[in-house]
Design a protein around this nucleic acid. Structure first.
Lengths: 133, 133
DNA sequence: TGTACTGTAATAATAAAAGTTACAGAAATG
DNA sequence: CATTTCTGTAACTTTTATTATTACAGTACA
């Protein structure tokens, strides 16, 4: 329903919680996707401050803090920028009272939904998954 | 992020909470989408028991209960069947401990996330939007 | 019987996501 | 200091999902 980057990021971070300095090729072969997608996703996680990377030979990615401190709320925020629920690209009819308001309504719904989601996700850490492996 | 059907359904139901028996053409012109998409979405809402429809001349759609009783949790469930968070279509590497488990982990995450989301959405009714117009 | 609807299938167009290729630049290491 | 192994990123292609369109059978009303 939502694109698969969230799962990919969780996968990456959990792998790194077990062994640091993994290369994008190694990670990609565990997830079974293209290494460039891993590098792109790692790049997002780096910008969000969740991982560090090292270029060059023997380079790779490292968690930038304890897996206990990385929650799925952090991962969600690093992964997505758009609101949870789209509303259609088409401008709704502004001459209709509903058309005029649907945008604001969806903003409200998105805000409520994302807050609830993030609250729940903030209670789940990468450590939880690491400890299950 | 998620497809726009949720917003479309909310739009349809709120319109119907103001005036019943609207045709798919009328609704489509408020949303500014194709009438066939409206009929498809109404069909889903009908299967979920949220609206009734009448065929033939002067036909259209009707709420099947009070807008006070229709919550966004009902709408969400009528609208989506797949889990909130995808994981990649590719089978992850089963020879990797993480690859082996990611499926179960994402199932857990999905369950937790959807429960939190639905709980929040169940507190928001179509009546809320109707009363704001 | 004509008109105005729904229901739905089939298909086409568009947009988003995922995958690929290519290559510049960084660090280790012989 | 050249070679190797990595990251970072851009550009592009392929695939999949979403949205739109066309077409028409069936229903109900007048």
């Amino acid at each position: 329903m939502i694109n698969g980057r969230f799962a990919i990021s969780i996968h990456i971070l959990t792998l790194l919680s077990m062994e640091e300095g993994l290369s994008s090729d190694y990670i990609a072969s565990s997830i079974n996707i293209n290494p460039v997608l891993v590098r792109k996703e790692v790049s997002r996680l780096r910008k969000a401050g969740l991982v560090d990377t090292k270029e060059g030979k023997n380079g790779g990615a490292f968690l930038s803090c304890s897996p206990r401190k990385i929650t799925l709320a952090d991962v969600y925020k690093a992964t997505y920028e758009k609101p949870l629920f789209n509303h259609s690209k088409n401008e709704p009819n502004p001459r209709c009272p509903m058309g005029k308001r649907i945008g604001e309504i969806m903003d409200e719904v998105n805000e409520a939904a994302e807050a609830a989601l993030l609250k729940k996700l903030s209670g789940i850490s990468i450590e939880k998954f690491r400890s299950q492996l």
